[in-house]
Amino acid sequence: MYQIKAKIIANRRITSRYYNLVIDAPQIAKFAKPGQFVNVCVSKGNEPFLRKPFSIYRIGPQNVRKKSKIELLYKVVGKGTDILTGNKTGDYINIIGPLGNGFVLPPKTNQKQQSEIILIGGGIGVVPLLFLAECLKNNRSLGVSVLVGIKSKEESFLIRDFNKLDCRVKVATEDGSNGFKGLVTKLLKEELGFGRSSSVCMSYTCGPSLMLEKVSKIAEKNKVPCQVCLEEYMACGIGACLGCAVKVKNGHFPGFKYVRVCKEGPVFDSRQVIWGE
């Protein structure tokens, strides 16, 4: 974990609401794992007051062994992300990372049929899944399928980098303007239907919490383990303030306890999470 004043390499506008931020952060790039995040100081003053957490989209440069850059992909939703868009190449930004526990990679397996992986992303939730997909593709001979749910074809850039990775990509749009018309959870049901789930050894998901809850239920029903990447309002990002609590099972407070999304998470085994409380 490092706090660094990092140089901005690029802050590219992808669409009016999505930006791609590349930061020179060798220490963080060296240790970052998929699913981990950085906590970014977006403001020089008091507005917005808190740092803002962002998942790591990937580390780079590509085809270079020694990674020195981290890449974020962010959606402009409020004051903090709006200020972030104003950053220019050469500016410095104060970030803390890498934070949290990332995804647990699937166990190495020799049985070829046992090695299907499914990633399910909703909107901007694809961010940590891309870094994960890169690791899965780089290190292992696994079959990786990616199911992505987006609003409409305007957000299709969210799947572009998965296509480049040579993953099997399926997209669902709410308006049917690209791929399947409907929800990504419907795609997942189809993927796992007709006994196909037996070849899937792990699923990973990130996106809106209602989607995560649905994905977890579908995965559990089909006996596919599922790792969910959660979001919660954060202040410190390092486990000190207890602000980012989420309810999980098996605690010593009859049947539950609160754990920190920033420290024990943001990735959890779906069966541990108590949804909606």
Binding site: P48, F49, L50, E232, Y233, M234, A235, C241, L242, G243, C244, A245, V246, K247, G251, F253, F256, K257, Y258, E277
Partner: peptide, 11 residues
């Protein structure tokens, strides 16, 4: 155990 989330908000 503490309180249910959300526990913090920026002002």
């Amino acid at each position: 155990a503490g309180n249910p989330p959300p526990r913090i908000v920026e002002t």
